[in-house]
Nucleic acid binder design. Structure first.
Lengths: 329, 329
DNA sequence: GGCGGAATTGGTATCGTTCACATCATCAGG
DNA sequence: CCTGATGATGTGAACGATACCAATTCCGCC
């Protein structure tokens, strides 16, 4: 195929290849002739052939769980866009389940796809470790959220700071303490939010209520809400994500507890509909897309030594979005 | 690399290749020896080399818009899983914007990735056409939702039937007529829902109120709700998706209109949190993942003539999920 | 005019695999 | 024991690009 272009332009294959790769030592008129030939033939380089000789593909792999959830889905979008901007394609794999074998399968499938590097978007330490171990040794990898020890670089939302901002906000409104509905115990991001919440309360010298554990779903938030509604004296709740906050709102509504008059609620994620819940939800907004971008930058730093700014900041700090679900006590 | 295996197993490259491709004419003990060697060396076939000689990659391309939304994201998941089950990888591209040039760019980028086929998950006729025209001629393609004329096969949710079920449900509850908050005008799926809604009302001999146009977002649903709240005599609203229904609920709540006592609301999509809104939302549940699966089946039918059941049913019929946002009049 | 070094271009091997064809081994039947 | 068919294996070319090295051209300067 490159031969056709070469013939039409009256040069050798090699020269076409040079034009293709923007090698400097090609005379301007030769370059023009080649470019013109490429246009005329609607030539597209065969990336498989190129990958074969270069021993490196133009593909990045992503292993992701929960890829339908707002946070991960947005991160995936960020990864895709950043990768494309650098000339890489992205292939996304989602294990059927959280089982060990399912994860191993997925990693193996990625391994055979000859990717240049891998981003692991997993919420649990164990799963990430499993995935990484199943990858061929030496394949560059970056973790999003959960990184086992410091074996590989990680990019994450600064969950703890996000939680801190949420709690701080509630304390400033005059609440004595803040209850917390957390994500699953085995999820690192969930635990980081718990840690931030607890630390902030302790620093302020407040009592720390027991954690109510959820699983990210609206349903678990609803159950947590029913549980909290039984108790008296609760004035502020920090939910570890907006979906659970949504469930909370529903439970409180059902029990005649008014938000924010009786109880203030803060969520986490700022899903697009957060502003249209009843009442509009005050929440913490993390920039998931930025996380994806940073993950790609970091990964490409590993893949391609010539990459610049390989040392991307590993934390993305979220911000507070004030709406109507919180009020002064 | 295949050579290493061959040497260790004491056979030729060709024999290893035969084992790899499950060619029948290999003696059992030879096969075992080769398989053992492969395991010992942790050999993985180089898919780029294979793709090069076979002139076909093991990759499917997907162009998708709105990949963060629940529906499309779920379809993407279905595509990914179905593809993997058939030994194909998937690369997903999302244009930066809906601009023509952005779409053309995206398609071009896919074209150079040597994919075996393409799934276009686009909501508008125009965008899909643009995307398809930018793809190299002869590349098999399947459209999800929006298919321009009948140039390529399409797989879609049976939107009209979904709408019909929603309207039917409301009419059976005794409502005189049903208002509709639609998706954007240029979206085929939105228009199909409008058509189903209108047809059902007309067949029942009811008056057809004007369509209130939204853009899928909760915000537009909210605005539509405020608008509807101004009018009197409205007892039932069918929103074209759950996010807009959510906005509606909020607007009605704000204006003191009770759901379902004063107005019944039906959504579309059955997002995971639909059951935890205030009140829990009655909605239409389309199986988006199934659409993804069917798209892959259909595409692979085009890519690989040996594929079976190439004639997948092109419509996936949704079902009604009854919750508490609808009541008898 | 001739020389040296840089810029430009071409030739050939190579990446890891499969394909087409050739070869060798095996076995049943006459 | 030979023949022919069939099964099992090996050999060399090809896929489309890049890498490495050699060859040619160009240019400024002595």
């Amino acid at each position: 195929m490159i031969g056709d272009v070469a013939r039409l332009a009256g040069v050798s294959n090699q020269t076409v290849s040079r034009v293709l790769n923007e090698h400097p030592n090609v005379r301007q008129d030769t370059r023009d002739r080649v470019l013109d030939a490429m246009r005329r033939l609607d030539y597209r380089p065969n990336l498989m052939a190129r990958g074969l000789v270069r021993q490196k593909s133009h593909m990045l792999g992503v292993i992701s769980f929960d890829s339908v959830l707002f946070g991960p889905a947005t991160t995936l979008l960020g990864i895709g866009r950043a990768a494309r901007a650098r000339g890489y394609g992205v292939t996304i794999l989602t294990p059927e389940s959280g089982d060990r074998s399912s994860i191993v399968d997925t990693a193996a499938s990625l391994a055979s796809q000859a990717v240049a590097g891998v981003v692991v978007v997993f919420p649990s330490q164990a799963a990430t470790t499993t995935a990484l171990l199943s990858l061929p040794a030496g394949l560059p990898a970056v973790a999003v959220e959960a990184a086992p020890d410091d074996a590989i670089p990680a990019v994450r939302i600064d969950q703890a700071t996000g939680a801190r901002i949420a709690v701080q906000h509630l304390l400033e409104l005059g609440h004595e303490t803040v209850w917390h509905v957390s994500g699953p115990r085995d999820r690192l991001d969930a635990q980081a939010r718990v840690d931030g919440w607890r630390a902030t309360l302790e620093e302020a010298g407040r009592t720390t209520p027991p954690v109510v554990v959820g699983d990210w779903s609206a349903e678990s938030g609803y159950r947590a809400g029913l549980e909290l509604a039984e108790r008296t004296g609760i004035t502020a709740v920090f939910a570890a994500n907006d979906h659970m906050a949504l469930g909370l709102l529903r439970a409180f509504h059902e029990r005649g507890i008014r938000v924010p008059e009786d109880v203030s609620v803060v969520g986490f994620d700022d899903i697009p509909e957060a502003g249209y819940l009843i009442p509009p939800l005050t929440t913490i907004r993390p920039d998931h897309e930025e996380v994806g971008r940073l993950a790609v930058t970091t990964l490409l730093g590993l893949v391609d030594e010539t990459e610049q700014d390989a040392t991307a900041p590993p934390y993305v700090v979220p911000t507070l979005v004030r709406r109507s679900s919180t009020a002064a006590r």
